[in-house]
Amino acid sequence: MGKTMRAAVPDGNGSVGIVTVPVPEPGADEVLVRVEAAGMNRADLLHANGKYAQAMRGASAADTAGMEFAGTVVAVGRDADPGLLGTGVMAMFPGAYAEYAAVPAALLLPAPCSLSPRECAALPMGLLTEFDALRSLARLGEGERVLVTGAASGVGLIGVQLAKLLGAGFVAAATRDPRNDALLTELGADVVPHDVAELPGLPGIDVVIDHVGGAWCEALAPVLADSARVVSVGRLGGRRAMLDLTAFSAKRATLMGTTWKTRGVAEVAACVRAVRAAGVTGVRAVIAGSHALSDITTAYRTLASERAAGKLLIIPQRTEEV
């Protein structure tokens, strides 16, 4: 390991370039990870334009793009567990698009032996986001009915799987593209709506994990069961929605929002502990494609335009570039 590394750094105006920077030194409670693959997220586009500041963004990752990764621990801080050296890990933490990343040890998830580093890199954001929405916020109960909108996104695909793994008795996975139907059904969806006009045909929904917002959020009230919980995770279809508050009130429904932008390391670490304690296993990673770190400009263009199901990856190491 040398003293410098390549990293992808945004200019705040939509462009991202590769620069040479010092390899970060792990802090007392951190580890240094050799990044073998990193997952791309729509929030990366906001970050590239200077519009996605995160509360947990540390000094070592202040400028480096990327929010989730997988790799091998190559150094540990003074107070971190030395037993982590050489282990495969995955994490959601800023600074993923680089050859090395320093991350608080409390944010590490163990990399399943059955999955490759690339598969692991596609999981952390989705696992933590959807577990937080389904279990921590919506309090999903055994046998309840769930609707996941934007279900073919990298995060949404994990939401469909987690809903079933956490005990949902019925999962509707909404996607605009019928080409995603077979995949969503394979991952656990009982029905796949393609348009808001199809929502009234669903049974009463107890929990909605909404990645779309806009018109989809506006259309939810008639399909909700009494005491339903709606969690707004993403706004792929628009930040604003006109809600019939009388209809929501009649169902005694609860509307909640969630984001990682305003949550510090301690809050994220609590979610990591909850995921580990739940022993969630068997979540499948769906990879839409990958780009070398040196091809970061093309990767961002693909992210902005790509509508294929699954997660796009960045491969930082030169020997593994695609």
Rank of each mutant, 00 (worst) to 15 (best):
K3D: 15
A7H: 00
V9M: 05
V9T: 09
P10W: 08
N13F: 13
I18G: 02
T20K: 11
V23W: 04
G27H: 04
A28I: 06
D29W: 00
V33H: 09
V33M: 10
V33C: 04
M40C: 02
N41T: 02
R42L: 13
R42Q: 13
D44E: 13
D44S: 11
L45F: 14
A48V: 13
N49T: 15
K51L: 15
Q54W: 11
R57L: 04
G58N: 12
A59H: 04
A61H: 05
A61P: 03
A62Y: 00
A62N: 01
A62D: 03
D63H: 14
D63T: 10
T64Y: 05
A65D: 06
E68A: 04
V74S: 09
A75D: 13
G77E: 00
G77F: 08
D81E: 08
P82Q: 09
P82T: 13
G88E: 10
V89E: 01
M90E: 06
M92F: 12
F93S: 15
F93D: 12
G95T: 09
A98T: 06
A102Y: 00
L109K: 07
L109D: 09
P110D: 11
P110N: 03
A111G: 12
A121H: 01
P124H: 01
L128M: 07
F131D: 05
S136E: 09
G143E: 08
V148T: 06
T149L: 08
A151F: 10
G156R: 05
I158M: 07
G159P: 00
L162I: 07
L162M: 10
K164V: 14
V171F: 02
A173W: 02
P178A: 11
P178I: 10
N180E: 11
L187M: 10
D190I: 02
P193A: 07
A197Q: 12
P200E: 06
G201I: 08
L202P: 00
P203W: 01
G204T: 10
V207Q: 03
V207K: 03
V207N: 09
V208S: 06
V208W: 09
I209Y: 03
D210F: 01
D210Q: 07
H211N: 12
V212Q: 01
E218Y: 01
S227Y: 14
A228M: 02
A228E: 07
S232R: 13
L236Q: 02
L236M: 00
G237P: 04
M242H: 15
L243C: 06
A250T: 12
K251R: 13
L255F: 15
W260K: 08
K261G: 00
A269G: 07
C271S: 10
V280I: 15
V283C: 02
V283S: 07
R284Y: 14
A285Y: 03
V286S: 06
I287M: 12
A292Y: 06
L293N: 04
T297K: 15
T297N: 15
A299F: 03
A299C: 08
R301T: 08
A304V: 14
E306L: 14
R307P: 04
A308S: 12
E320W: 13
V322C: 15
